[in-house]
Nucleic acid binder design. Structure first.
Lengths: 207, 207
DNA sequence: AATAAATTTGACCAAACGGTCAAATGCCGC
DNA sequence: GCGGCATTTGACCGTTTGGTCAAATTTATT
């Protein structure tokens, strides 16, 4: 183990622990409701130590948002892995479902950020997201022109996909309540994923 | 104007003004982020007056939640206005879309409450909502048995409807950003509503 | 008009919060 | 093992916040 690795390691490890705790507290309480004391307690470090790594609560929040933003972009790229609408949509919806399932906490932080009017990621909405939507809308329009999809407005399709997949993170607790207190099993989740994919694809089929 | 009407009027009117302000502040900032001072300022009353009508912030929050709960139940009842799946679903989805459009603020408060694990409406989830879902699931199952819908799990259909419709309240700001800063017009919203209804209904059609 | 009840409001308070700081401790190359 | 840097931590502080209170004012009742 060479020197810089260890040196980085202490910082990297502590930042990871703090970020993970922050994710949980932000997801449960929102930005204002989260206290640095609670995050520090969950991370198992003194509050002053947390402020040593992340100078302000806002900076810590931004770091959490950036983490899920990266994951969002990764999932978004799966849309481009095929030029067949059924395959592309199935992949993309599946990736977004998996994101909600594997990162429910950061997904909820993300959803809250959007709902509050995107105070931190407004720039992302106006640039990267707008571009992504414009480009993929063109692809969907081409599929429609080729008779592979019935005529729809692509934007409303994306909204439906974002909403439905995100819901499996946002409303996980509600779903658990409706399953008599048992969280959705892996098997149930896979069934839900399949149904979402099939419903949307069937819903877009040309007449 | 008889006496009790006026007497009730002062209280009723002030409660209404405060509730409306509370809705906006809770929607924008979350429960913890909302301050009674901000709510009072928006309502145009001194903070002490707010506490005269609603003793605690939690009580005020509960009142806001109850208001949207009533609206939720009203929309839910539209599912039962027809026994034809296409008509019942179209009505229900339309009602839920209209709810998100006409009450975006309380809808966002509702969504936050669900996302935070329903600290206030857990009882509703376990009783009224569970019952509603169970009963309507049976109806959907019957439609499937009658060959009117392809085989699906009703719960995941409801999740899709709730998520998609709720999204038009939750993500209104995001949509505005993607429309170059212009909020969805009534015309666009009606088109979105139609597309959501048609996509879901087509997605459920038997093969 | 007199009395009681409802409403209004500025001033105030204890608790909680985000953030600071200086001193202590650990870690590393030399 | 020493000097320099990163890390740790308890104590502390100014501000914000939900909520209280008593006095003033308005409204309703007789």
């Amino acid at each position: 183990m060479d020197k810089p690795l260890i040196k980085v390691s202490i910082r990297a490890e502590n930042e990871r622990v703090i970020l993970e705790a922050a994710e949980a507290i932000f997801a449960a309480a929102g930005f204002k409701g989260a206290t640095t004391a609670a995050i520090a307690a969950r991370a198992g470090v003194p509050k002053a130590n947390l402020h040593y790594y992340f100078p302000t609560k806002a900076a810590l929040y931004r770091a959490v948002i950036e983490r899920v933003l990266t994951a969002w972009l990764a999932a978004a790229s799966s849309f481009d892995e095929s030029d067949d609408p059924r395959e592309a949509l199935a992949r993309y919806i599946g990736a977004k479902m998996d994101l909600a399932r594997s990162m429910p906490l950061s997904s909820r932080v993300w959803a809250t950020e959007i709902m509050r009017g995107a105070p931190v990621i407004q720039d992302f909405l106006d640039t990267a997201l707008a571009q992504w939507v414009a480009e993929r809308s063109r692809i969907v329009q081409r599929w429609i022109a080729e008779g592979k999809l019935r005529p729809i407005e692509p934007k409303y399709l994306f909204y439906m996909i974002w909403a439905t997949t995100q819901h499996y993170a946002n409303a996980a607790h509600e779903m658990t309540s409706l399953e008599n207190g048992r969280p959705l099993s892996d098997r149930q989740f896979e069934a839900a994923k399949r149904q979402v994919i099939e419903t949307i694809i069937a819903g877009l089929a040309p007449p």
